[in-house]
Computed example of a mutant assay.
Amino acid sequence: MTPLTTYELRAAKGTRTWLQLHVDSGAEAAAAVEAGIMILSCEPDHTLVPIRAAAPGAFISAGMPHGTIASEAEAIRAGFAILERGANAVYCSHSPRLIEAMAREGIPVTGHVGLVPNLAEWTGFRAVGKTADEALTVLAEVRDLENAGAACVEVEVVPVELADHITRTTAMVTMGMGCGDVCDTQYLFSSDVLGTHRGHYPRHSKRYADFVALEAELQAKRVAAFRDFAEDVAKGGYPTAGHEVRMDPAELEAFTKRAQTIGRG
């Protein structure tokens, strides 16, 4: 199956809202596609190849770990390596200088504005762009990414009005997280959708399952099964004849006689 392409996403801009998930495994990717979600993001680690295998028709934007590149040459090499492993685009929160280097070589790049976790030292973990001055700063960052040749931009936790303006005035595909329903994609993390962790959940997230409870139930069943196994062995219930392999008596006799001739070192 041919994956959804950057060209197709950009050609459809303004005509529909795509669903998007950040997934952590091939199983999650397969479930997303079965549910009709065709835009995925993931880390470029050991999960990328199985995610691509599980979702051959999906558009995948794979993240480039922040701080792993420091030059245009390194960016280009790392970008092509991620594409070769199955991604359609490379997520990059580095400067426009490094994004431009990749874009010039034809590597589709996803930039990031608003609340950028890798850059939260400068903004804090909060909504970004609520004042006119800050909104203009975000818009300027969008223009920088656009001028650098980025194909997509993640717009995270900015006011709806700002996200709407960005989406209407850029040719980039806007991937919206926590900024209403005005972007080109509606984007969440699978961990938030599935409820896989305890503790803080972002305001913009919504849980549709409780995998923490399911995992606790599975763990209890694991413990119970292991205890049953231990008790069964202790009481002689396992193994039984049905679990064993026995030699034919004649073969055993032949083995016993010949074993006497095998020297010991």
Rank of each mutant, 00 (worst) to 15 (best):
R168P: 03
R168T: 01
T169F: 00
T169E: 14
T169V: 05
T170D: 08
T170P: 08
M175F: 09
G176W: 12
G176E: 07
G176I: 07
C179A: 07
C179H: 01
G180N: 02
D181N: 00
C183P: 00
C183N: 06
D184R: 03
D184M: 00
Q186M: 13
F189E: 02
D192T: 05
D192V: 03
V193I: 11
L194F: 00
G195V: 07
T196F: 00
H197E: 10
H197Q: 09
H197C: 04
H197D: 01
R198E: 01
G199R: 02
G199K: 02
H200P: 01
P202N: 06
R203A: 15
S205V: 02
S205W: 00
K206E: 12
K206V: 05
R207E: 00
R207D: 02
Y208T: 10
A209L: 14
A209W: 14
D210N: 13
F211L: 15
F211V: 12
V212N: 00
V212G: 05
A213E: 15
E215P: 00
E215C: 06
A216H: 10
A216P: 03
A216G: 08
A216L: 09
E217P: 05
E217C: 01
K221P: 03
K221G: 04
K221Y: 01
R222A: 02
A225D: 11
A225R: 12
R227S: 12
R227I: 08
R227D: 15
D228L: 08
F229Q: 09
A230E: 13
E231H: 10
E231R: 14
E231M: 10
D232T: 15
A234V: 03
K235G: 11
K235L: 11
T240A: 13
T240Q: 15
T240L: 14
A241R: 11
G242C: 07
G242D: 15
H243A: 10
H243M: 10
H243Y: 13
V245W: 15
V245R: 12
R246Y: 07
R246C: 06
M247V: 07
M247K: 14
M247D: 11
D248I: 02
A250W: 03
A250S: 02
A250Y: 06
E253I: 07
A254D: 08
A254H: 06
A254E: 12
F255L: 10
F255V: 05
T256K: 14
K257W: 03
R258V: 09
R258A: 13
A259S: 11
A259T: 05
Q260D: 14
T261S: 15
I262N: 07
G263D: 12
